[in-house]
Amino acid sequence: MIRKDTLYATAHELTRRAAIEIPSDYLSGLEAMAAKESEDLSSFVLAAMLENYKAAKEDARAMCADTGVPRFYVKAGNEAKIEGGMVAVEEALRSGLAQATHDIPLRPNRVHPLWRHDNNNNVGLNAPEIEYSFEPDADWVDITTVHKGGLFGTDYRMLFPGDGIDGIKRFFLDAMIAFGKRGLACQPAIVGIGLGGSKDTCMVLGKQAACLRTVGDRNPDPKIAELELELMEMGNNIGMGPMGFVGSSMVVDCHIEVGYTHTGGMPMSVHSFCLSSRRAVARLYADGRVQYRTDPEWFTPYHRRNDVKWQPEAARQSA
């Protein structure tokens, strides 16, 4: 049985880790990028960011004061038993986030869209977002928190089948250039692309691609994997770097997630994560253990399944 108090303590600790500690995959990606950057100003900015991560960890203070809009992803094993059930999970996530907002502190970013009222704890109407996924043959629960900024770097477009890869590249460039100027997208970042689905699914897939996959991870479909690498290279050849200064550092990695879509369309979304790619993950076991990590492992073969009935053998062979 996974206990309520463990859920609460984990939500609190995850919030702290995400705000303060840069995930190691993103850090390595950025260090490699900084080593290749040849423009003086862009290099200066990257060096400042690398120093900032160190300062955050040494001082135990948030990397960036725009601590984004914290949200959670819950992946529950099909055999998991939770004290109080899923309602207790939501209560723990909401109260853990509210208390951590005060304790770390995070910026209380969540306000009513019209009246601008702030509960000062990052909790409110429909906030934080909590998304769910399930995993067969498991009795653990994975909780991931992501603190992504919210104003710039995201866009959606309805493309059509005939627009093809050219259409995808065009829209990708449009988004990178438009939000990259003056560095509004806080690049270089992990860029997520949602392809297909319904409009809402398309947005969700792109956001998850940006926030829940690590640097170096490739889509299991080799042709999609190739497109990921091609778009990453394209982004880094725009001639733009951090803060929109001349440079070559835009895309630390590009992840594409695909969903079956309307036969007449090819919707696409683009999402830039940011220079403080804040994510933290914990696995809660039935015996009370909690293990922390930074890879959400969200897109499991089961999560990406393509057939009517779950067929683990078929998934293993195609992976």
Partner: peptide
């Protein structure tokens, strides 16, 4: 600079 040298500024 960055953006987000929040810890250095802090």
């Amino acid at each position: 600079v960055g953006y987000g040298t929040g810890a250095l500024l802090g």
